[in-house]
Design a protein around this nucleic acid. Structure first.
Lengths: 211, 211
DNA sequence: ATTGAGGGTGATTAATAAATCATCCTATCG
DNA sequence: CGATAGGATGATTTATTAATCACCCTCAAT
């Protein structure tokens, strides 16, 4: 059966040589080309028959993340698997947003790299375990930021007072606003949280991390 | 060496039985308990010594996603690995936001499940390949939404006119606003994109997907 | 020298969002 | 029955953001 055609882009020639030998020996792959920077890759991946590009991130002349879209333009069917030591969040998110099909660290075991390439070839995305962890943490942080913006600063003030057991009257004294204003803020809080009363609002507030 | 202690939560008893046998036979694991719903798990995971809970999502009496935080409260050191057929985006994002350490599909090969459990035990997060793909697509969509909101509708109108090669004068005729208004919008576009002139703004606009 | 184009700085108006407050009703408790 | 508390509905004012426009300068082309 036909071998999966790989193209290596990495500025370290010893690494490329070693990787090429390793991949060719595995039996399922054929390394059809190798260059030391994306600019050289641009000249070739449009011409060669390539299934997957293994692309480093940090390279002297051009960053791998910036090369993704250009490579994809030159060969729309191509798949791109980042192979790097960088665990930098910006590199990772940049690679994803630019369309990388996977992000694997260079400390990966050969057998895992082989499986990763096969997964990418089959249309799935793959990440190294540490990268998966970083991604999930990023998603959690993003969600927390989003959650925080549901309520205005004033609404949060009122909700925290409620959480401490204060009545409308107490809260108006604490915040130097009228009871009617407090009630309006509470109404908006309940609307935004889709709850029926202030007790539920406090419970939801705790769940969302407001206190 | 000591075996990793697992706790199974799944409403299908045949599945639990088969999984328990499989995991125990692997040698690295010991299934110390199994229940058919999270409510029963609440009673036990605080008492038993459990390293990792394998938790289904869809269960009749309580959804697994909703159980995560409660399980974490009962035993803060516990790790939770979702094991489910659900590829629903809301289930997935819900699980992640509630603190799940991994999300693996039930169609996973036994050897991959073993490795996944070991990764989670070692502090990493794991996802099935299809789930990784879904996660990366979610991140891309989120980023695209965010990007779209950088500019107001009017600014986008102006930028698109620029991209078609129009001058300030042409754009004012097209949009029925004064040239000075067009220039102000262009100024704001350049500020938001952190570029120095309108050509760069157009290039950045293309990169960000405005046209 | 004039015209056309782009860029810089500032101001005004309109629209939207946030914060404020009023009035009325219901339920509970003393 | 009166007082207290929570909730529903609506209105006004203030603050912020978006959209609008004016004026001035520099540079290149004619």
């Amino acid at each position: 059966m036909e071998k999966i055609k790989l193209f290596l882009v990495d500025d370290h020639s010893l690494f490329r040589r070693g990787l090429k030998n390793l991949l060719n020996e595995m039996g399922e792959f054929e390394v059809v080309g190798e260059v030391s920077n994306p600019l050289e890759a641009f000249n070739l991946v449009g011409k060669l028959e390539v299934d997957i590009v293994l692309l480093d991130v940090n390279m002297p002349e051009m960053n791998g993340v910036q090369a993704i879209q250009q490579l994809r333009k030159l060969n729309p069917a191509i798949r791109i698997l980042m192979l790097t030591i960088s665990q930098d969040n910006q590199d990772l998110i940049g690679a994803i947003n630019n369309g990388a099909n996977g992000y694997v660290l260079k400390n990966t075991e050969p057998e895992i790299l082989k499986n990763s390439i096969l997964q990418v070839y089959n249309g799935n995305s793959v990440l190294s375990p540490e990268i998966t962890t970083e991604i999930l943490n990023t998603i959690r942080r993003t969600q927390q930021d989003k959650t925080k913006n549901i309520l205005t600063e004033r609404e949060i003030d009122v909700l925290r007072c409620l959480a401490k057991g204060n009545t409308t009257s107490n809260i108006s004294n604490i915040l130097f606003i009228s009871e009617n204003t407090v009630k309006t803020h509470i109404r908006h809080i309940m609307e935004k949280m889709e709850v029926k009363n202030r007790a539920e609002a406090v419970a939801k507030g705790a769940q969302l991390g407001f206190f």
